[in-house]
Write a protein that binds this DNA or RNA. Structure first.
Lengths: 191, 191
DNA sequence: AATTTTATTAAATTATTTTTTAACGTATTT
DNA sequence: AAATACGTTAAAAAATAATTTAATAAAATT
């Protein structure tokens, strides 16, 4: 009967982890990470040792090339990294388990890209709009549209710069001075 | 020759707007908003009057049902809203042009959903893990995994609560006390 | 050096998502 | 009340994306 009990506990553990894995994968899907890649990260989140591509393949029941590309995506987002371990010639990977780090990499990197991408488009557009406005031959109606666009883009530029400052404060950790990481509630503490 | 000049200015204007439209659409794609939906928002961003579904259809060269579903998605994210205008029996829509509002709706709502979704999974999982740990029949190895999972999930819970506070500070505008919205640089100001 | 192991790339397949056309229902106008 | 205009839903088609199998390349072992 002892084996029966242990089986039960393992099942419960899988069920517990499974619920969180589903939630994490669904969350990532929310931001455009495909379900499989999200599930891979979530699965790795519960592993206490580094995983090989074969481990992942077995865990998710998928092919090795899929794991190879999926894990590369996760490395690009910087929430999985390759580790080295004496003896193993297979590549080994571990997931970032600190969600504050996760947040910083995931959003920080995207916001940075967003700001850069849009600022450069704004620069380009504003230059053209200025030309239109400065040109005396421009029809009044077109000129007014250009002026309105220009005002709107200046607002947008301010936002992009704000984003850049947000990225900095997230990556430097300054944001946690404003919004501290709080411990769990006392109710849970003295349990 | 006057008509030629005007044509030119309009073309330039379209080109200027087009560059920003591309950037906005690409940005939205980064977070899982499909290119067409992103492009629709970006197109609306430059319109100074409300648009009908037919306007959108003409602007993007797509079918009306596509516009109908796309605009609904944008309404769900709260970055487009329906407006009423005397005389028109067509539905009219305008895009949110303040990107701080955009940010707040887009990320705020997702973070809120993320926190709720994961907190409920964590609650569920922790309850099961406690059962496993409290059960004296549980194998030592399984028990230890359960304990480690539990510790990890407590960390995760702290993050989720932090996210909730972040959402609050974004939606209430408190975040702007910490990270003020700055005016454009003085160089541009006295231009 | 030959063999085996491992990871990646390429091509083909499968699945999913997006988009459209067609049909429907509701409201407005005539 | 009939006809028209508008928006949405449903079904079909088209386009994309994900996944796998097969082939290749690179490294390590024998």
């Amino acid at each position: 009967m002892e084996g029966k009990k242990q089986q039960k506990a393992e099942e419960l553990l899988e069920q517990a982890e499974g619920a969180v894995i589903d939630a994490i994968a669904e969350t990532m899907d929310l931001y455009g990470v495909t379900p499989s890649i999200g599930r891979l990260y979530a699965t790795m989140y519960f592993k206490h040792d580094p995983l090989t591509l074969d481990d992942m393949k077995d865990d998710l029941g998928m092919s090795k090339p899929s794991m190879s590309t999926a894990v590369r995506k996760l490395q690009e987002i910087n929430i999985v990294k390759k580790v080295w371990k004496k003896g193993s010639r297979k590549d080994l990977f571990v997931a970032e388990k600190n969600f504050f780090q996760y947040f910083s990499h995931f959003f920080g990197d995207k916001w940075e890209r967003e700001a850069k991408l849009n600022l450069s488009a704004i620069d380009y557009a504003e230059e053209m709009l200025q030309q239109i406005i400065n040109n005396d031959d421009t029809e009044e109606e077109v000129k007014q549209r250009a002026e309105q666009d220009l005002r709107q883009l200046e607002e947008y530029r301010i936002y992009c710069h704000w984003l850049e400052r947000l990225v900095h404060s997230v990556e430097s950790g300054e944001i946690f001075e404003f919004l501290p990481i709080e411990e769990a509630s006392s109710k849970d503490n003295n349990k």
